[in-house]
Design a protein around this nucleic acid. Structure first.
Lengths: 231, 231
DNA sequence: ATGATATATTTGGTCAACCAATAATTGGGC
DNA sequence: GCCCAATTATTGGTTGACCAAATATATCAT
């Protein structure tokens, strides 16, 4: 009964440090290409432990804002100035990404993935997609919902597209899609039979190496989601 | 003279630990929702320090594979099973992204961004894009190259599209684009005047709220890059 | 004065010990 | 026998000290 009360969200000290460093960069005190102050100085300046500074720098490194060179220093990447423009704040409150943006972008990627898969798929890809699809159907008919397995099938399509970047991007947004769908309860039980047919149709088009047909099939499949996101 | 010799790339121990944990999950020894063994046990089992395990878990957390609960334990999230399928291996060899995939995907995103920007751009967006464009031209005419500023202009377009996810994805691939361009020396000085005109044309189309025109202009602008990636 | 070499300092990386909050256990009271 | 509180053990978080490599400085021979 208590889990729906507003959760007291204590601001993570590491995120605060990230913000501080972000300010250092965006205010122009440190320009791209220049070195960040050493971890010890930063720790002293912010009045925190060095490990927390290290953790913050680690995150910044993962996002590509800075590059650490062992035994030398941490430099602000040239692209940092690009990412700083808004990426970090996005990461800190990633839940604010609106649902429509997510769906629209997903559709953009999915259609292209289906098109490329129809062109580039190997026989091995076909087998893998089939396995994923059968697995999805099995779970769906038993439990009534199988969002994860659904998305897994879609990921196999992006794999078959042979475009590694497209696939990576699909993987990046997949968790968010899953989260949103679960939260908003998009899945609808009485559409199960329909979605299975749609999936089979997509796979068929890819199998036949029909790019336009694949796009069309994917468009049809995602139509419900589009409508849901538009309301 | 030595800096171009093949650098001996020692596999990062933290990445190795990530692989190990990935295996623990994907092999089914730990299922979504279940707890990961405590950090101390993992450290002992892998024969490494606890800090390294913590760092690995940190990364997994950033990518949403696991969720750490202080003083309680680290649980594998539901989405893990999807992400585990390949996301981690992507993290480990992110540099293997091939150039063609990168360019193709970029074009897909850029065209959609231009289209949406032509529909959704505010007057404020126009001002920002203009500033970015002028800044780009200034640097270009002085130094002869301004890839970063170029990409900054493109990012402003994705901002004007008002699709936050699309913008985030653009930001994610931007560093890789920059890296590839620098490595392959795609930029060509005698095309400077041309690219400036192309940029102005794109901005014009967005300003006029002409989606199709914006797509076309962007296509034209990226034509050189497409040709370069196809050879 | 200049150059190379040896030393000292600074750097990020690593580690083991400690802290506070939580979960599990145990003991007592009803 | 059952339930609740006090205690103990376990958890992730934090800290300061130490390490090896890279850099800056000083020293000395030329």
């Amino acid at each position: 009964m208590l889990e729906n009360l507003s959760r007291i969200e204590v601001e993570n000290p590491v995120d605060l440090i990230i913000s501080q460093i972000r300010d250092l960069i965006s205010s122009g005190k440190i320009k791209p290409g220049e070195k960040l102050p050493p971890e010890r100085k930063l720790a002293e300046h912010f009045g925190v432990s060095r490990n927390q500074v290290r953790e913050a720098i680690n995150k910044l490194q993962i996002y590509g804002i800075v590059k650490v060179q062992p035994q030398s220093g941490t430099t602000v990447t040239g692209i940092g100035i690009v990412a700083i423009e808004g990426l970090i704040t996005d990461i800190l409150r990633i839940e604010k990404t609106d649902f429509k943006s997510l769906v629209d972008t997903r559709i953009l990627l999915e259609k292209e993935a289906a098109r490329l898969a129809a062109i580039n798929r190997s026989n091995d890809d076909l087998i893998k997609m089939n396995i994923a699809l059968n697995h999805y159907e099995g779970i769906l008919l038993n439990d009534g919902f199988a969002i994860e397995e659904d998305l897994l099938f879609h990921l196999k399509i992006s794999e078959a597209s042979k475009n590694t970047v497209l696939r990576s991007l699909m993987m990046i947004i997949t968790p968010d899609i899953l989260k949103s769908f679960t939260n908003l309860k998009v899945c609808n039980e009485n559409t199960n039979k329909k979605t299975i047919d749609e999936h089979r149709h997509i796979l068929e088009m890819i199998s036949e190496k029909n790019p336009d047909g694949a796009i069309e099939a994917m468009e049809l499949h995602l139509k419900d989601v589009i409508e849901f996101s538009n309301k």
